[in-house]
Computed example of a mutant assay.
Amino acid sequence: MLTVTPIQAFVDNYIWVISLPTSPLVYVVDPGDADVVIHYLQTHQLTLAGILITHHHHDHTGGIKRLIEYSTTMLDIFGPSRENIAHINQPITDQKQILLPALGVTASIFYLPGHTLGHIAYHIQDELFCGDTLFSGGCGRLFEGSASQLYHSLQCLANLDPKTRVYCAHEYTLSNLKFAMDVEPNNPDLAHYHAHCHRIRANDQATLPSSIEIEQDINPFLRCHKLEVITSVNQHFNQDSSDVITTFGLLRQWKDKA
């Protein structure tokens, strides 16, 4: 059974540590800050075996070089080959799965253009490490891809087993839920989850992981087919459209300015 632990970095990033209770070897996901990772490894007497990168943004990759220098053995550094990321030695181009030998598990790879064109996610057992594609209550900005690309990327994740745990890279949940409640004010699941996350953050705890099941119930970017979401978008933009991609793209524009 895998253990997944967050390391807080910068203002709101999470670097995820993937481990087994029986081994000191670990992988980390998107280490933008090497110092906090090294501190965690030393404190818990762990050894870094490898790094999983979802996309090229510096707050996800900035610690790679320093972690290579810190490590006494060669690290397996996985990342999307379609993006310009230094130090990747296990490039992922079209593989459906990769092996993480230090843990004896395989990771399924999802190709998720939208936030960036080469963005990928890692699905390991029941855990999804999705970088900046899917957030709890939200999704990533469209920096490189199209609304259609990001919509279909999110639908790919939404079709996973509902119990899949979602480990995204930022603590954006309360901000996302505030916007979601403007879009879907009559969603009781959303209201309940908003109150729940407020209590968690009041104790300085992470709202993550979420789950696919939760996101299907509360995340407006996975609910663009729902009448209330469509109606809210149409009213906000003074238009009349039921096209799901149009609704998604305008919803993302609305969130960008919220």
Score class of each variant (00 low, 15 high):
Cys197Lys: 09
Ile15Asn: 00
His225Ala: 14
Phe179Ala: 06
Gln205Tyr: 12
Ala158Lys: 15
Leu117Phe: 01
Thr231Pro: 00
His236Glu: 06
Ala86Leu: 11
Thr5Asn: 07
Ala202Glu: 06
Pro209Phe: 09
Ser175Met: 14
Thr164Gly: 13
Pro80Val: 01
Tyr167Met: 13
Val4Ala: 14
Met1Lys: 12
Thr173Met: 08
Asn89Gly: 02
Leu117Met: 10
Gln97Ile: 07
Ser81Lys: 14
Ser232His: 02
Ala180Gln: 07
Trp254Gly: 08
Glu83Val: 06
Gln45Ser: 05
Tyr122Pro: 12
Tyr40Trp: 15
Gly138Ile: 09
His60Ile: 04
Leu154Tyr: 06
Pro188Phe: 01
Gln149His: 07
Tyr151Pro: 10
Ser153Glu: 07
Ala107Tyr: 00
Cys168Phe: 09
Pro31Gly: 02
Asp76Lys: 11
Ile68Cys: 10
Ile85Asn: 03
Phe78Gly: 01
Glu83Lys: 00
Cys197Met: 12
His194Leu: 10
His192Glu: 13
Thr72Gln: 15
Leu99Lys: 15
Gln42Pro: 03
Ile230Trp: 00
Phe237Arg: 04
Gly62Lys: 01
His196Thr: 09
Ser148Gln: 13
Phe129Asn: 06
Val11Trp: 09
Leu99Phe: 04
Trp16Tyr: 07
Arg82Phe: 04
His58Tyr: 11
Phe135Gln: 11
Ser148Trp: 05
Asp33Met: 01
Gln149Met: 08
Val105Trp: 03
His55Gly: 02
Phe143Tyr: 15
His87Leu: 00
His192Lys: 15
Asp243Tyr: 09
Cys130Asp: 15
Phe221His: 07
Ser108Glu: 15
Thr116Val: 02
Val244Arg: 06
Val11Glu: 11
Thr173Gly: 03
Gln216Cys: 14
His39Met: 14
Gln216Ile: 09
Pro24Thr: 09
Asn84Glu: 14
Glu69Phe: 02
Asp132Ile: 14
Ser146Lys: 10
Ser71Met: 08
Glu215Tyr: 08
Phe179Gly: 04
Pro24Ser: 09
His170Val: 13
Leu103Val: 00
Gly249Ile: 13
Leu100Thr: 02
Ala147Val: 14
Leu177Asn: 08
Ile64Leu: 02
Leu100Phe: 01
Gly50Arg: 02
Thr3Asn: 15
Pro91Ala: 06
Phe10Gln: 10
Ile92Leu: 00
Gly50Cys: 04
Leu251Gly: 04
Ala206Glu: 08
Gly118Tyr: 05
Ala195Arg: 10
